[in-house]
């Protein structure tokens, strides 16, 4: 068994595709019409055969209150790995991305949290390797 997919629940798939590709820099992998929606996935250009992120419609009535409650408390829905949180923060802020938490050093990890414009907060995290 292996993990090949992960989902974010988005309020608008087209808007999500733009944000996740144009702002975050992921690449579209699958885009298959599926009733009123699409089977829409993106991958990291650093790992094009790796785990796909499904940009999944948030149409179930339970999802919106769930997302709103997470966002209110500043809780990210998921987290992506980056090599330089400070550089990503600077780059994304210049693109108008709203951060609810600027880069913060927790000793073993530096994290920041931003709004994906589709109803989610997303964390970026950089592991800090300490010399042995």
């Amino acid at each position: 068994m292996k993990i090949n997919l992960s989902s974010v629940l988005v309020d608008d798939q087209e808007k999500a595709l733009r944000f996740y590709t144009e702002a975050l820099g992921f690449q579209k992998k699958h885009d298959i019409p599926l009733g009123p929606y699409r089977w829409l996935t993106v991958v990291s250009p650093e790992d094009p055969d790796g785990t796909e992120l499904v940009l999944e419609p948030d149409e179930h009535p339970a999802v919106k209150p769930f997302k709103a409650a997470l966002v209110e408390d500043g809780i990210p829905f998921t987290s992506f790995a980056v090599t330089d949180v400070a550089a990503e923060h600077k780059r994304l802020e210049a693109l108008g991305v709203r951060f609810t938490q600027p880069p913060t050093d927790f000793g073993t990890v530096i994290t920041a949290v931003f709004d994906d414009t589709c109803g989610n907060l997303i964390q970026i995290a950089q592991e800090i390797r300490k010399p042995c």
């Binding site: 500043g74 809780i75 609810t100 913060t104 927790f106 949290v113």
Partner: peptide, 11 residues
């Protein structure tokens, strides 16, 4: 946010 505060308190 509550999330950031909790992270700081834990870490």
């Amino acid at each position: 946010t509550l999330f950031e505060l909790c992270g700081r308190l834990t870490m």
